[in-house]
């Protein structure tokens, strides 16, 4: 058995190694984009069942964003919704035999956490300007600046570790049980892995939204006390 912490290149594109997680990610991207195109090909005011399902997904994501931010979900919908869909699909791709979920390798969760880190900066600067965003690190007082800066890194790192650890451990456990027990024994663990994958996708998306909202609110102009 290969170590789950060990990624081997699937092939080389010149000097660049192409890992299996990247190929699976491309496949997931193709599936999601093709599915999106098929779903939105014939949108009508009177929805079909598939259109209703798509609208239910959009409405749910909007509701979650609105509940967390208290603002209009439009600016965050694409990023947060895509994070959730991609992580969910990636986690559930473990059901396909021979496929290792991209989120079970360190690079993908690290890339997702890095994107969240960058998005916190992006939305924070967009909401309150560079000054406002930087002032957010000095709250409640400038003494907290180093801790706040460290926190902004560690919370993204914690997201990376949480997602990677959960998914990797699930895959690892299933692989161990599958190698030791009969064919049907890992099935309950796979079901549990489905639940864990969905929960982790939801947690990652919600935490991303919470951190972005925190940065936006801290950077926003404070009302003057009369």
């Amino acid at each position: 058995m290969d170590s789950p912490l060990q990624s081997l290149p699937l092939f080389m594109a010149g000097p660049v190694p192409i890992m299996a997680s990247v190929v699976v990610t491309w496949a997931i991207m193709a599936v999601l984009v093709c599915g999106a195109i098929l779903l939105t090909r014939r949108l009508t005011l009177v929805p079909s069942r598939t259109q209703a399902a798509a609208e239910l997904l959009v409405t749910t994501v909007d509701g979650q964003i609105r509940d967390v931010t208290g603002a209009a979900p439009g600016p965050y919908r694409a990023f947060i919704g895509t994070l959730f869909l991609f992580i969910l699909t990636a986690n559930w791709s473990s059901l396909i035999p021979g496929v290792t979920p991209p989120t079970a390798t360190m690079e993908t969760p690290a890339a997702l956490a890095a994107l969240v880190f960058l998005s916190i900066i992006f939305f924070g600067v967009r909401g309150g300007g560079v000054g406002g965003f930087l002032r957010g690190f000095a709250m409640p007082n400038p003494v907290m600046i180093p801790l706040n800066m460290l926190e902004s890194i560690t919370r993204s790192f914690s997201m990376f570790v949480r997602l990677f650890g959960n998914v990797m451990s699930g895959v690892f456990v299933i692989a161990i049980v599958g190698s030791l027990a009969a064919l049907l024994v890992p099935i309950p663990l796979m079901v549990l892995d489905l639940l864990t994958g969905a929960v982790q996708a939801y947690i990652f998306a919600i935490l991303s939204m919470v951190f972005i909202t925190s940065a936006v609110e801290k950077g926003a102009p404070q009302p003057k006390e009369s």
Partner: peptide, 19 residues
Amino acid sequence: DPWTLGFQGVNVLVLVWLL
């Protein structure tokens, strides 16, 4: 692998834009 990290970051960004 930092290449994979970069690939995955770009992949997710592209996916965000496409979706």
